Computed example of a mutant assay.
Amino acid sequence: MQKFDQLVVKQMKTMDELLFIQSEIERCQEIERELLVLQEETKLNSLQEEISIMKQQLKDIQTTFQNQTASIIETYEKEAVEEPLFK
């Protein structure tokens, strides 16, 4: 019976190790998921920064376009006054 008891004790220790390793794997997997989320957040932040830069560029281009339109209208009006359309 002593051999049986020894085997049971050994198996219990093995079971404890198994449970410990299993819990460590689960803990590491949770950290892994968090890191993946953080990496996605980093990508999201990077994308948001790109969008912000592009919005500013768009705003600058719109301002340039408006200024060009105003210049075109002003030039047309000046030339229309200086030179009659029909000669």
Rank of each mutant, 00 (worst) to 15 (best):
M1W: 03
Q2N: 10
K3G: 02
K3I: 08
F4N: 11
F4P: 00
F4T: 06
L7W: 03
L7P: 01
L7R: 08
L7T: 03
L7V: 07
V8I: 13
V8M: 00
V9Y: 02
K10L: 09
K10T: 05
K10H: 06
K10W: 01
K10D: 13
Q11C: 09
Q11M: 06
Q11Y: 08
Q11V: 04
M12W: 03
M12R: 04
K13Y: 01
T14F: 03
M15P: 01
D16T: 13
D16L: 02
D16V: 07
E17C: 07
E17S: 11
E17T: 12
L18Y: 11
L18T: 04
F20M: 14
Q22D: 13
Q22P: 00
S23H: 06
S23C: 08
E24V: 06
E24I: 11
E24Y: 01
E26L: 09
I31W: 04
E32L: 11
E32R: 05
E32G: 02
E32M: 11
E32S: 10
L35I: 10
Q39L: 08
E40K: 12
E41I: 10
E41T: 10
T42P: 00
K43I: 04
L44E: 09
L44F: 03
L44G: 01
N45W: 05
N45P: 00
S46D: 12
S46Q: 11
E49P: 00
E49T: 12
E50H: 09
E50R: 13
E50I: 06
I51L: 13
I51G: 00
S52G: 11
I53Q: 13
I53Y: 04
K55I: 10
K55S: 10
Q56W: 07
L58H: 12
L58M: 13
K59E: 12
D60Y: 07
D60C: 07
D60P: 00
D60H: 06
I61L: 12
Q62N: 15
Q62C: 02
T63I: 15
T64A: 12
T64V: 12
T64N: 11
T64E: 15
F65L: 15
Q66P: 00
Q66A: 14
Q66I: 02
N67R: 12
A70R: 11
S71Q: 15
S71T: 04
I72N: 05
I72T: 07
E74C: 09
T75W: 03
T75H: 06
T75Y: 06
K78P: 01
K78H: 05
A80N: 08
A80K: 13
V81D: 11
E82V: 03
E83F: 10
E83L: 12
L85K: 01
L85R: 03
L85C: 02
K87T: 08
